[in-house]
Nucleic acid binder design. Structure first.
Lengths: 225, 225
DNA sequence: TGTCAATACGTCACTAAGTGACAAAATGTG
DNA sequence: CACATTTTGTCACTTAGTGACGTATTGACA
């Protein structure tokens, strides 16, 4: 069982910690009494994603109930749905949360890069994150592929990224050289290559190095006649 | 309220027909006793999609219950789920059902066309279908955009098309000139243009002519440096 | 036309996701 | 310590979706 990287950083995933209260108290101790309430909520959020992903990877998404996720943490079902609107959000929400990071990355790309190149490099920055923990990335991807409802949400996430990057690209290049349709297609093409590369990596069992596959995919886009 | 085109053909949508039995009997009369059972099922299917889409367009997807769809037809809720696995399938399933038509279209494209051109023309053939009833297409698209769960299923449908067309393209060109990654990207690029064009059309209120937008989108892909 | 197997349907009971309302507990502030 | 705010738990409820089982309808054949 690999470590699970939740939004707040990597968290050990082996020992199924029933010591929820203890974690909270140590957090309080170390955090010098700034915003205790937010601290609690952040921790709860992390614990929920940790336990949830553990169970999903172990026994599948559909067969895991909210009660099973909530029970070892001593949290009520109702509270779960105050943190996550749906069961699926537990898996995909952190992906949407990294949208601003992508936008920043694209904004900070050198001005002399072509639009497509800038977007490609932005997406490539995610590849290195995946390389940090390939086993987990592969397991998560299998979960997404095998669970229809999750696959759908994953596609939605892709659309969110596309829209954000499209808006950023228009801003960056100006609407004259880069009107909406053109921007959308530039981003879409880069995203297409990205997705295709990720699928290729997945079909190979997640063992290959992702970066060269991605670079190959991006070059296939630019070489198209 | 526009007419709704269900898989079996266009069906008038205005008069909310409570004459389910009558429809069935006339069907039997005209159909020369071939396969009565299948006839019944096909009609039931069409009636369910018709009433369902009517209600979804009138009062929204989430606020419409299965009971509301089933009640005017005198069908039980249980039977609904023997025809459609989920509520969402009522809206998107017919799209998946046209996958083989796309595959045929691509297979029958002239051999001298470039791969990208062949796929593009295949997708363009759908545009003319949308032009048949733009008001309905626009209404359905709004439904898809405004309902998260439907948007997700719609994306799934896109993936199904992409995979089918990718496999067909590999077959058509041979795996040597067209390996998997390359085929996937070629199809993905065409689909990207297609989606972008459809969005552009939607953002314009669905009033413009779809075809020129699509052709513009496809040319933007090929003109990419 | 009557009989019988296959298939489709309705009813009932059930699980689980998700929501609204309200009271209790914890926290932030003075 | 007292009070307003926020968070949580409990309870009741709606709705999607499923399994089991009995009944009705159809197809095939005598």
């Amino acid at each position: 069982m690999p470590a699970i990287e939740s939004p707040g950083g990597p968290i050990a995933c082996g020992a199924s910690s029933h010591n929820f209260k203890h974690n909270l108290e140590t957090t309080v101790m170390t955090a010098k009494i700034t915003n205790l309430r937010e601290q609690f909520k952040t921790t709860t959020r992390q614990e929920l994603t940790r336990v949830g992903l553990e169970l999903f990877l172990q026994q599948g998404f559909a067969t895991t109930t909210i009660d099973q996720i909530v029970e070892p943490l001593g949290i009520s079902k109702r509270t779960f749905f105050r943190y996550f609107a749906t069961k699926e959000d537990l898996v995909v929400e952190w992906q949407s949360e990294m949208t601003p990071a992508f936008v920043d990355e694209l904004n900070n790309r050198p001005r002399e890069e072509t639009p497509f190149k800038a977007v490609s490099e932005t997406l490539l920055s995610l590849a290195s994150r995946i390389n940090t923990n390939p086993e987990l990335a592969f397991a998560l991807m299998r979960l997404l592929k095998e669970t229809p409802s999750l696959a759908g949400r994953d596609m939605e996430r892709r659309m969110v990224w596309e829209q954000a990057l499209t808006a950023t690209l228009i801003e960056r290049e100006g609407p004259k050289v880069m009107p909406r349709l053109k921007a959308r297609i530039t981003v879409g093409m880069a995203m297409t290559a990205w997705t295709a590369a990720l699928d290729e990596w997945y079909l190979g069992g997640g063992k290959a190095n992702l970066r060269p596959i991605m670079e190959k995919a991006f070059s296939l886009v630019t070489d198209q006649q």
